[in-house]
Design a protein around this nucleic acid. Structure first.
Lengths: 228, 228
DNA sequence: TTTAGAATATGATATTTATCACATTTTTAA
DNA sequence: TTAAAAATGTGATAAATATCATATTCTAAA
């Protein structure tokens, strides 16, 4: 079992503010898990007993609407923490997390995290900053969902995905999402997402083969995202 | 000038976790402000030098979309804190706050708040909890905006407004919003909001005279909000 | 009090998006 | 390897919503 104090991943999140001593304690109570593609890390309504530190892989975090449709709220990837919010508010999770590919995550029990939050101000301040940032992002998403057309949201989503996941050797965005997942990110019907993707392809703004999507004309995509 | 240690308002927010000593210090550096209806407490892009504790009145917190339309993100009222997020993330505000009626607010300088956040774990934990709660709410709004129809969102908004502001002696929701404000909360064109309000009135589900809106059939409104 | 400007209201129409139906392709599992 | 299931794609149509035009009512400032 790898040790937290030697783990490079913590440099990417708030855990970097923990002391050596705190990390050693954490090492002793944390467990590693392998999550297979398609499996849930946790489900809506579940009471989390700790948080997850993503060592490898990507998962989609989503929520069911009253209409019975799934809305993807965020994609969580290597280096991110998952589940802090439910822990802090001490409520059942309002979200579900499903692996998009095989994942490796560490589970850190609630008590350990809460103790560190209480005792280590620079850790709690970092979590606070993270949350403030996430909240700002959420505001932007609300505005986009409320005010932008599906076409604008699709263009923006493609740009965001490329910014977050980068591109592989073939210049394709380095994450594999189904058309349904894409539709569930932008909040539209799967058919609509497919149609608009085909449009963008026809206009040579993007290219795709299956789930490999690449951006050919980033400027044009930005223009579309802004509504022209 | 009233004193924080004697102020009842702080019981409604995280400031209740401050010690007597911390409150006395705060009293000495805080200032009171009167904000007239329609005036801004702060504007998008402004760098806040502190946070605001709302003693009386209501303001709308909004953000301009790239399409040039305004989206109201939240209504902030008596007892709420305003501006913590920009302070914590140490960035210019992404939001604008405009008074909906005459307001009385206290301004607490950044240094004072940050010091308390660092030194008082029960205060910072409370702010953290607040933020986790706000984030959960934001998730719900994202899902609603992405998945619900304008009609559903209007019904839900009316129910939310009544839950938050209560009703006056005439059974009308105790906050005055223009039709444009209502449209900017649910993310639709003003005309669409007006039309749907008229529909609800015709069906005797709500009644209104000018900006006084009352809910006549709460059950039916809940049914509509859920999409039937 | 009067009056211009703003807010509210409503019709006509265009645009966007969802839904349903079905064909084709890809993936998965026996 | 092959059959079944899932994902992708496309057309036709319906429903939701925005936009534009214009009328009416309300509000606030001179």
């Amino acid at each position: 079992m790898s040790k937290c104090e030697q783990c490079i991943i913590r440099q990417f999140n708030s855990l970097k503010h923990l002391s050596r001593e705190e990390l050693v304690k954490m090492s002793n109570c944390k467990t590693s898990k392998i999550i297979k593609k398609g499996e849930a890390i946790f489900d809506e309504g579940e009471r989390l007993k700790g948080i997850f530190c993503i060592k490898d892989g990507v998962c989609k975090v989503s929520k069911m609407s009253e209409n019975g449709r799934n809305q993807i709220i965020s994609l969580v990837t290597k280096g991110d923490l998952l589940g802090e919010r439910s822990l802090i508010s001490d409520e059942a999770s309002n979200l579900k997390a499903i692996a998009l590919n095989d994942m490796e995550v560490c589970f850190i029990p609630k008590e350990e995290i809460m103790k560190d939050l209480e005792k280590n101000p620079s850790f709690s301040m970092s979590v606070l900053k993270d949350m403030a940032q996430t909240l700002k992002q959420a505001d932007n998403v609300i505005v986009d969902m409320a005010q932008k057309t599906v076409k604008q949201r699709l263009a923006e989503t493609l740009l965001n995905l490329q910014a977050k996941f980068g591109t592989n050797e073939d210049n394709a965005i380095d994450v594999h999402l189904s058309r349904e997942d894409i539709a569930n990110i932008i909040g539209t019907a799967t058919e609509s997402a497919i149609r608009l993707l085909s449009d963008l392809k026809k206009k040579k703004i993007i290219a795709f083969k299956g789930k490999d999507i690449s951006i050919l004309d980033r400027n044009e995509l930005e223009t579309i995202a802004q509504g022209f």
